[in-house]
């Protein structure tokens, strides 16, 4: 019987972006369930604040300042985490690029920025952490993309474009990792990067939305989902199926 109160007991987890509302909810949830977490944040203040909240639960956890737009920075981040963690078995990619511009307003720089933050950053962390997971036949990778992949919102073409590739990368990694019991899943999140609520949301939800998102990530990270891989889960309170409000 599993210990449901400590679903990630003794595990080492990496969350690439632990600074935004969703990311920090995930970091705290993992710590609550006994994991040691390494997470990236964009500034020291955010890192210290989150670390302060989990210090008692998970004293070995740490943060590193990380800008997902800086590919050398990501390599550095992965290297430092691997120095400190014996074996990372949970990886959460939670990229955040989000600029409101229509197609005609976007520039080549915007395009490069989106592809680096939402796509290449994931490839980089996979290269760093997938290999050891495969060699040890244990691991769960969760890639968080956006529900705008299938139901685009106005004025953010590169969000849909860059996030749209995460599903394919998820399935191909799941395919490679399947026989080594490395599971890879995607969450099409209805909570936009940096936000803390689903909008719009037909479902009446009580309490914190990011908490619910963190619970799904926990489910996928833990052995509760041991037969689930290569899947994409849409979290939007049913908004994608709604015709009439």
């Amino acid at each position: 019987m599993k210990n449901y109160a400590k679903l990630l007991e003794g595990k080492y987890a990496v969350v690439t972006n632990g600074g935004d509302p969703c990311g920090s909810a995930i970091v705290k949830k993992f710590a609550l369930h006994g994991a040691t977490v390494a997470f990236g944040v964009r500034d020291i203040e955010t890192g210290e604040r989150i670390l302060g909240e989990i210090a008692e639960l998970s004293p070995e956890s740490f943060y590193l300042v990380l800008d997902l737009a800086d590919s050398d920075g990501i390599e550095e981040f992965c290297r430092k985490v691997k120095e400190r963690f014996p074996l990372t078995t949970v990886l959460v990619n939670n990229p955040y690029a989000d600029i409101g511009k229509t197609i005609t307003e976007t520039t080549e720089e915007d395009y490069r920025y989106f592809l680096q933050v939402n796509q290449r950053s994931i490839m980089q962390t996979l290269r760093a952490f997938y290999g050891p997971m495969r060699d040890n036949k244990c691991g769960s990778i969760i890639n968080i993309s956006s529900n705008t992949v299938f139901k685009p919102i106005m004025g953010n073409p590169f969000l849909t474009l860059s996030m749209g590739t995460i599903g394919g990368l998820t399935r191909v990694t799941a395919f490679e990792g399947g026989e080594f019991y490395v599971r890879v899943n995607e969450i099409l999140s209805g909570i936009l990067p940096g936000q803390s609520e689903l909008s719009p949301c037909p479902l009446k939800i009580e309490g914190s939305h990011v908490e619910g998102m963190a619970d799904l990530v926990l489910f996928l990270a833990s052995d509760m989902s041991s037969y689930i891989t290569g899947q994409s889960f849409t979290v939007d309170g049913g908004a994608r199926r709604q015709l009439f409000a």
């Binding site: 399935r171 799941a174 395919f175 399947g178 209805g190 689903l198 037909p202 479902l203 939800i205 009580e206 309490g207 939305h209 619910g212 998102m213 619970d215 799904l216 926990l218 489910f219 037969y227 689930i228 891989t229 290569g230 899947q231 889960f233 849409t234 979290v235 309170g237 049913g238 994608r240 199926r241």
Partner: peptide
């Protein structure tokens, strides 16, 4: 349980990834 409180109108494949290959 409350763990799934955001999730509705979704199908969870529990099939070892059979549908994706």
């Amino acid at each position: 349980s409350d763990m799934g409180k955001l999730i509705t109108a979704e199908g969870f494949f529990v099939n070892g990834g059979q549908n994706s290959i």
